[in-house]
Design a protein around this nucleic acid. Sequence first.
DNA 1: TCTTGATAAACGAACGTTCGTTCATGTAGC
DNA 2: GCTACATGAACGAACGTTCGTTTATCAAGA
Lengths: 216, 216
Amino acid sequence: MSTPPRSRLRATDAQLPPTPAAPAEGTRRRILETALQLFASRGYHDTSIRDLATALELRPSALYAHFAAKDHVLAELVRIGHEAHFEALETAFRDARPTPSAQVQALVHAHTRVHAENPQLAMVVNEEFYALSEELAAPAQVLRDKANAMLLDTIRRGMAQGQFSPLHPEITAAAIVGMGSRIPHWFEPGGPIAVETLADTHAQLALRMLGHTAGT
Amino acid sequence: MSTPPRSRLRATDAQLPPTPAAPAEGTRRRILETALQLFASRGYHDTSIRDLATALELRPSALYAHFAAKDHVLAELVRIGHEAHFEALETAFRDARPTPSAQVQALVHAHTRVHAENPQLAMVVNEEFYALSEELAAPAQVLRDKANAMLLDTIRRGMAQGQFSPLHPEITAAAIVGMGSRIPHWFEPGGPIAVETLADTHAQLALRMLGHTAGT
DNA sequence: TCTTGATAAACGAACGTTCGTTCATGTAGC
DNA sequence: GCTACATGAACGAACGTTCGTTTATCAAGA
């Protein structure tokens, strides 16, 4: 930390989706929430164990009763973030009408919503993922690959059925993912744009990018 | 550095556009190029002065004959990156036919090309910008704001002329910028997709997102 | 009711290492 | 002999982590 630089993300109350591995109460949960806030605003490598302990009003040593090492805290946040993201995509996909355009719309809507509702977690997951060892990153990498495949498969299906005419499926898929990933860098929940507006707009933008024509 | 984690970006030869402040030869230039490579792959905060010196086959103290402090190296890279980016946008805009759609196409093409041709610099500029103090970041921030304004103004002009029907100008502008910013995370120059293909595709995608209809 | 023992959590101090940076000194080329 | 650059040694501070001890909580036995 040293001379505190600018913050990457406005420090609102850190939101962490509930998860079996991190019960809604208790010190472990508090550590994760506070770490999320610090990692999102200053970055993982610029946040020390002492910074984290100070924010928690604990001594550094106390943290080691709950996590084996600093990178395990990050790994847990990254894991939680990927699971919440993947589950949201899966649910949206399952509940959508079984047409490629409805499915793409549902996927992009969910992808956008997750990023807009949990900007801190999205920031940490996207920007600090690389800081984990291959071993600690593995569970998240699996979900990442499956999510990308879900979108690309749906696009390919839409092409086969003549509903989509993308200029280039892979580039378009990357562009769609990219516009979502950037949300935490500019969007503020509670600001002038509603989350629902953003999600709807992104879903429509995705269809436009895919050259979706007529019908459902 | 300690236990080296995974790399954020494949370590190709770091490309740095030539610039008045950093002549094509000399130790200062070598420092910037090597720092660019390390910052892009491991991140600024996880790269130590000793890492940088080792890669340069110099002693840490030697660096201080060329830069006042570690963050000045980053600031210089960020400055160079923003100037190259802004100059590319300005040139593209100036040379485009004076219609909003041609101008948006030119802006997005240039934006994409800069990110695809210099992925390391784009990565550092986008991901480590926040690590700079407000003072050191200021020159870059000015260019950042001007570039965003250039795109949004053009979009608004296109709307006024009835050429664009975006769902939401600000969201669409952010989405267009976002798909460019994410390029260094997945695109590999020299890979299966040519830079020119990517730039053309992104330019067309932007027009689709804006609901561009007919004509030029 | 009082005592006891077990358990979990936090503390306080210290560890060895690495951090960014300084500075007196050396050296090569003009 | 001046300038530009590199060196080696050292600085205090901060780093992640360990460990022995203390404190808080609570159930079981007398």
